[in-house]
Design a protein around this nucleic acid. Sequence first.
DNA 1: TTTTGATGCGCAAACGTTTGCGCAAATCCG
DNA 2: CGGATTTGCGCAAACGTTTGCGCATCAAAA
Lengths: 343, 343
Amino acid sequence: MGDHVTNIKELSERVGLSVTTVSRVLNGKSEQYRISKDTQTKVLDAAREFHYSPNRIARGLKLEKTETIGLIIPDISNPFFASIARIIEQESRRFGYSLILCDSQDDITTENELINLMAERKVDGIILAPVGLNCDHIRGLFQRTIPMVVIDRYFPGTRMPYITTDNYKGAFLATEHLILNGHRHIACIQGLKGITSCTERVNGFKYALKKHKIPIDKSLICGNDFGEENGYLQTLLLLNRKKKPTAIFALGNLISLGVLRAIYEKGLSIPDDISVITFDEHPYSAYLRSPMTTIEQPREKIAKMAVNLLFEGMQSGNGVDDRIAINLEPRLIIRESVKNLNL
Amino acid sequence: MGDHVTNIKELSERVGLSVTTVSRVLNGKSEQYRISKDTQTKVLDAAREFHYSPNRIARGLKLEKTETIGLIIPDISNPFFASIARIIEQESRRFGYSLILCDSQDDITTENELINLMAERKVDGIILAPVGLNCDHIRGLFQRTIPMVVIDRYFPGTRMPYITTDNYKGAFLATEHLILNGHRHIACIQGLKGITSCTERVNGFKYALKKHKIPIDKSLICGNDFGEENGYLQTLLLLNRKKKPTAIFALGNLISLGVLRAIYEKGLSIPDDISVITFDEHPYSAYLRSPMTTIEQPREKIAKMAVNLLFEGMQSGNGVDDRIAINLEPRLIIRESVKNLNL
DNA sequence: TTTTGATGCGCAAACGTTTGCGCAAATCCG
DNA sequence: CGGATTTGCGCAAACGTTTGCGCATCAAAA
């Protein structure tokens, strides 16, 4: 006694019953197959005594489900994605599912490989924060065979269920906040052009200007990457103009990091020399040299809804409803990085 | 043509060869089994044409390896762990392995469940950033059956290969930096008592004091959790003393977040009213209200070494060498959160 | 006593791979 | 030309599960 049994066969031999019966008891199908109470306790006791633990690989093969979901994320070290990942992991586990995490490193061919990998590994569902501009590689194929939900971004014109922040509104909120504080000459440093989260933020930005009858200066909408370096370089360029903007709107948390680096490197100060506002709240936002005014995305909601949607789709048997298109409300958090020019 | 084949059997029927042969070609064993060039190209072409992609579950079952490693982390939204996770994921993928990520939420029973889960899922190896004070639940059992390496913390007196920062040295560096700047009355807000990363940091702290002949005031070593709340509360308590410390040493990044909250809530300023130094570098460290002086842990090295160690152990066949015990050099990054009292 | 129905459990196939062994055909050697 | 060797490939078992179906046994009904 006390030693370990490695599979259900050994266990069945220990209790002198068939593999079939043991399996049934262990899977809670005793009722269904009329296994006597006696046998049940015998099996259960033995399982405990001999430390039986089922082989999920074999199980997965037979059942054609792995109780695993795949999460593909452009950069897990980005706190926005990290906190989303955390919640997705927790929620999935509540359903008894594990997570295969992959980091596409903002690279579309990697993303492609990862999706194939997920397919080979027979994950039961995929949550994807896509990196690319289009989704030819995913569309069709995967919505049919593996339930999938897209987060953070989506692909216009294609039917893939997605859930994201209302980026348009977020950008509008931020921009209007600047305008109400007297800013007219506002720069907007964007992420990768063409992806929805970026386009819509730019649109929200433009709409706010239009609404307040401020002409749009296209040269003030610059940059083309969500990384820190882009924020840094664009800010440097902006600061070197003859007519400097009075405010910078950064369209992502890494961008804003670069903005900060450039501004402080130049020896300028926020908000006295220049105002800054950014997408993405962060634990440190409040404690920065100039506490940052931010647009907070509802990360927890995004994550939870994504998981729930996915599981619905998985259970329904015919994938996630591809008419699903959810835009969640962002929130403006006002701190001190925006100067009131009206005073 | 163009349609998809779902398993190797179908594929073999398409090319008119046996499953055996097809499998061999696909696995690059043509040489070994003397498959003709002709057959090889036929198989390879068909595989492409019919989009064959192997079922890794079945493969895993037969081969008794899943090409998966398990990563258990206390909190993936902690940037320290997030960036480690990212590198571990990348490195593992270079070896052709995927990552099952689990977040133990700093809870030891969850950690336990997760380890069992990993075993059921037959991961080929585990990287664990353990949460608990002891390792009765892991020791013995797992070093024998699944190769494992522990990171960030370890368990003294037990033989489990680990790799961590030289916490003793890191704390020493930080403390000595304070002392050299004239501080004598230094508070140290620690994490969970009893775990090595905490104990050793405290020891390093004490040693620095001792070396400089400063008496150790035990009441200044306070707190018992790596969370933000602990940092906040302890700081509040410290600030309310008759004799306030001139400096606070936070033993973790979340703790320091709480320290900042408390200090600024009280309307004090760093470093004029009080100096702060902390373990863990962070992208925002440089841009805080008072740019933070930090002890940077070699996260990338930790992650890479852990992966390499694990793979060595997996390939060797008899687990990771349990005499491995690596302490990596931390780095002091001096900014402006420490006031020089000597001036 | 025979028939019927309920009870309790096991046989064997199936999931998609990999691989040890063996077998036929082709080639070589003397 | 006959035997030995090489070449090229397939049979079938195995990995650890789950489950449709069927088969005893037993009690109750007739």
